[in-house]
Simulated assay, not measured.
Amino acid sequence: MTKTLQASSIESVQHSIHNIMNVVKGLSEKEIRWQPSTEEWSIMQIITHVAEAIPYWVREIQQIKEHPDQTWGRGLTDETRLKTVSEENVTSLQIADVLDQLASIPAEVEKTLQALSSEDLEIIAPSRNPRFDGKPVEFIVNHLIVEHVEKHYHQIQRNLSKYNQE
């Protein structure tokens, strides 16, 4: 990953987090906590997930860099991931607190990505998730951080579209 690509990844995360925060700040608590269906997350669940997941993947990158022989990652059934978006957890959280957590993500991502060399991005460590086994650190940056935040921003947009059709 060239410096330009690192800068692009950092900028993308900053942009997506900024967009998420701007949208959420303009919504009512009812809109934020509304769940489109039992299979879909509320906006509150989405932002709570992003606030937990992106720092998780940043820490995983740091761990891989320090210990490339150790297993990294998690699956969709990871206990921490599921607890984070659980109704019990989400209802106990204040929106402002989650927005504060989101606000700290761009700097955390920037610090970690700027510290990566092109060699670091090529490190392939064993993954707990068979779908990700054999993937380099660059995959984590592109898919589990940059695209992850973008996808959840679009998910928020879909929720709002559905809410407005109610």
Rank of each mutant, 00 (worst) to 15 (best):
L102K: 07
I156C: 06
Q63F: 05
S161D: 00
V149A: 15
Q165H: 07
Q94V: 15
K3W: 08
G75Y: 03
P136Y: 01
P130F: 09
A107L: 15
N22P: 10
Y56F: 15
N142L: 12
I123A: 06
S118W: 01
H49C: 10
F139L: 05
R128K: 07
L160D: 01
H154K: 12
E138C: 03
R33S: 02
I145M: 14
Q45L: 07
T84V: 12
E119C: 00
V58A: 01
N164Q: 14
E147L: 15
F139R: 02
Q35Y: 02
L76P: 03
T38R: 13
I46N: 13
K25S: 15
D133E: 04
I20N: 11
E88N: 10
T71A: 06
H148Y: 07
I17F: 09
S8I: 05
E29I: 09
P36A: 05
T112Q: 10
V24L: 06
K135T: 08
P136K: 04
K83Y: 11
L76C: 00
W57G: 04
W72E: 06
I17N: 07
I145Y: 07
M44R: 04
H152E: 06
L113N: 06
V24P: 04
G134A: 01
S161M: 01
A53H: 03
E60I: 10
Q70C: 02
Q35E: 13
S42E: 09
W41V: 05
I156L: 08
E79I: 13
A107M: 14
E108Q: 15
I17R: 03
Q114M: 15
K25E: 13
W72P: 02
T2Q: 12
Q114C: 14
A103H: 04
H67V: 01
I46F: 11
T38S: 15
P126Q: 11
Q63I: 04
I61N: 02
T4G: 06
E11V: 01
Y163Q: 00
L102D: 03
V23T: 15
F132L: 08
Q70F: 08
E87K: 12
I10R: 00
I105V: 12
D133P: 02
T80A: 14
Q14I: 03
A51Q: 00
E66F: 02
V141N: 05
P36C: 09
K135V: 08
A107F: 13
L76T: 07
Y163H: 00
I64N: 02
I124F: 09
K111C: 02
S92R: 06
I64P: 03
A107N: 10
S104H: 08
N129V: 01
I17L: 08
H15Q: 13
P126S: 10
L121I: 05
E66R: 14
I123C: 02
I54K: 03
H148C: 10
E52T: 10
Q62C: 03
T48E: 13
R158G: 01
L5F: 12
I46W: 11
I124G: 05
Q63C: 05
H49T: 11
V13W: 13
Q155K: 05
E60T: 11
R128S: 09
V141I: 14
K135L: 08
V146S: 10
W72Y: 12
E122I: 00
H148N: 11
P130K: 01
H148K: 09
E40G: 00
T4Y: 15
Q6M: 11
S92D: 05
T91N: 07
E66K: 14
G26M: 03
L116A: 08
K3M: 09
E147T: 12
